[in-house]
Amino acid sequence: MSLVFAGVCSHAPGITGRDERAPTDLRDGLYAAFGDMQQRLHAARPDALIVVAAEHFANFFMDNMPAYAMGMAETYCGPIEDLDWLRISRRVVRGAPDLSRRLVTEILETVDIAYAEEWRFDHGIMVPLHFLDPDNALRIIPANINCQGPPLTPLSRAWAFGEALRRAADAVPERIALVCTGGISHWPATPDSGRINEVWDREFLARWTRNDRAGLLGYTDAETYAEAGQGGFEIRTFIAAAAAARGTGTVHYYQPIPIFAVGCTVATMEIV
């Protein structure tokens, strides 16, 4: 059928794992925005949800690191993290292996994506699913862009990956939803955790909502590292979403929440 939903959101583990330590109004506003996104997502009646994440060494390591990967399993399990630390219950998630295989086959026409028939979800996928699919009702297809272990894929290739995702979604009869998840500026898991460059974030989101391809691809990794931290490398997932959706975006929520270690973001993009 085609792509029927496109959005982006944050996935920081503090959003669930340290929820009581955030200012109540900010936390409740973020949770409400996630709830609104959940309704929009389910209203699109997707047959499967592709979650493009930037995982954190749950499956992929520097012994064999793919720039791009997609799951092709019957089921997935997550979270991999300590349950008390993340405060999300472990669940078995239904995949869509046949659909995955057709998507991967089409994507391979332009992007050399790896596939994986085993995949354990970390907070990068579980935090979004906790809010967007609380009843564990959807079929999920995980995808990953290596944003952790340099050398990293160029931003232009993240755009090409988004284009390939769109082409693949349009080529199958199923209704496909896409959620791409990452942080904008942040310095996660370092002593600087909580540092957020709001000006940088808002400029990035302005480019994203305009679907300004040149602007989005105009960052260098050196600039991003200096201005937005190592967490800023995850803009690759947002860039892929823009390339896939092709429309303009709407930011439903953006607030820096230091104890969550990121400018918390919930946004959707028109599909054209």
């Binding site: 340099p150 310095w187 370092t190 002593p191 600087d192 955790s193 540092r195 590292y225 230091p258 104890i259």
Partner: peptide, 28 residues
């Protein structure tokens, strides 16, 4: 503990997770 580590052992020696603030500064 990471701040204390930098105080005791000096700056991060490798990788991309270096500290940008001083060991005595708390962001949160």
């Amino acid at each position: 503990r990471m701040r204390d580590g930098v105080k005791r052992h000096g700056p991060v020696r490798a990788g991309i997770y270096t500290m940008t603030t001083s060991p005595d500064e708390k962001v949160v």
